[in-house]
Design a protein around this nucleic acid. Structure first.
Lengths: 224, 224
DNA sequence: GCACTCAAAATTGCATGCAACTCAGGTAGA
DNA sequence: TCTACCTGAGTTGCATGCAATTTTGAGTGC
């Protein structure tokens, strides 16, 4: 059976290529040869081209007219801008969530946060990273605004390779959980301004943590 | 040589179709038949398909697999979400601009605001609408963050048909200019929080103005 | 008169082929 | 030796054709 029936080849290709980029299987700067990708996935160039265009508008791929596509090269400056943008948008979502989350949503967010405490104490960074995506996703959803939520998700996906590494740093897990605690407390209490500030602080700390990692790796901006 | 040198047919098509949608020449909900568009623009279906996909990811067009593309139908709820998202993102840009605009950028913003005062007094709503785009663009640019700036621009483009109508309302021009005044004063003074609040207030007032217009038109969400 | 079935038409998804452009390597001229 | 030009391979942009799916409309039974 052809998994994912109903979806077109273009969609599946876009998802697979995006996955390969996000996980680092395709390094930033790699050329994305249409014919090579077509051969690799056993399709023709047409759906490959459409998938690359789609990824181009989402920023994962840079398509240069008549000069081929490459995996988007993120400079240190662009990385900083991406982090600032994500911090601001997530903080906005947190503020809106504090204002408009339903009681059920608040309880679920609280429960999720509690569960992550166990993962942090156990040092299970892989599980924590997964739960972290769900945690931030719950806050996006709580903002009750699909436009902001989609944008935040897309930024998060683009930054995933750079964020994930920092969870392996010793002590980062516990600190992340503590920062989340401040966000959750503000949201549950309906304190909009405080939720905004706490989330901005949290993501900004993630950024400086990542910057420390990158500096330690010696210059090149790589996802590790 | 082909007029717009360097650009591909796909790019030109995407720009032209987007223009047609934004100006209302293509009404929301219209089917976008690939062959018909290809005939109309004198190209084959391939570049049309690629252009439609591209517009799909930017939200102007809804592409349904195997079921064709239509001009994105904006429901009243979605319109409200778009306005909230734009208000929040613009407010964020205003806050960042208050923090990081250069002296030159501040002077130019001030000059632009002054010039718009004349247009408002003259009641030249068409010129005011154009200058308004430049005004908000200057604030995006002043945030010094391409990611947020691009997102804000794309939201603004999507909402353009709904925003423009309200400038024709008597008195709206003067009030818009007064609201801008509060934003400019805060940015020039470097008062970040106040710049944020003033911009949020301004865009939210635009939203309620638009909602009044739509309600007055009698139900259907149209661009007028 | 209305709902359901089924086949033909229309439309999309994808493969293939060709022309135009880019770029690397080599050659002629200064 | 260096610059400029040219040539050829390789890649992209686009057109065309075919198969699969959706849609439409006529016909049938209730």
């Amino acid at each position: 059976m052809d998994e994912a029936a109903g979806r077109t080849r273009t969609e599946r290709l876009a998802a697979e290529i995006a996955e390969a980029i996000v996980t680092g299987a395709l390094a930033p700067g790699s050329r994305l040869d249409e014919q090579a990708l077509a051969d690799q996935y056993g399709v023709s160039r047409t759906p490959v081209r459409e998938a690359l265009r789609q990824l181009g508008t989402s920023g994962l791929v840079e398509v240069r007219p008549r000069r081929g596509a490459v995996v988007a090269q993120v400079t240190a400056d662009q990385l900083a801008e991406l982090f600032v943008a994500m911090a601001e948008v997530e903080a906005t979502c947190a503020r809106l969530a504090a204002q408009s989350m339903s009681p059920l949503e608040r309880r679920r967010l609280d429960a999720l946060h509690d569960a992550m405490g166990g993962l942090a104490r156990a040092g299970d960074w892989a599980a924590y990273a997964r739960a972290n995506t769900a945690f931030h996703g719950a806050i996006y959803a709580g903002a009750h605004n699909a436009v902001l939520s989609d944008f935040a998700s897309s930024l998060r996906r683009r930054l995933q390779p750079y964020r994930e590494a920092q969870f392996r740093l010793s002590g980062r897990l516990a600190r992340s959980h503590a920062e989340h605690g401040a966000v959750v407390a503000a949201i549950l209490a309906g304190q909009a301004a405080e939720a905004h500030a706490a989330m901005l602080r949290h993501v900004t700390l993630v950024e400086s943590s990542v910057e420390g990692l990158l500096a330690g790796e010696g210059g090149a901006v790589e996802s590790g």
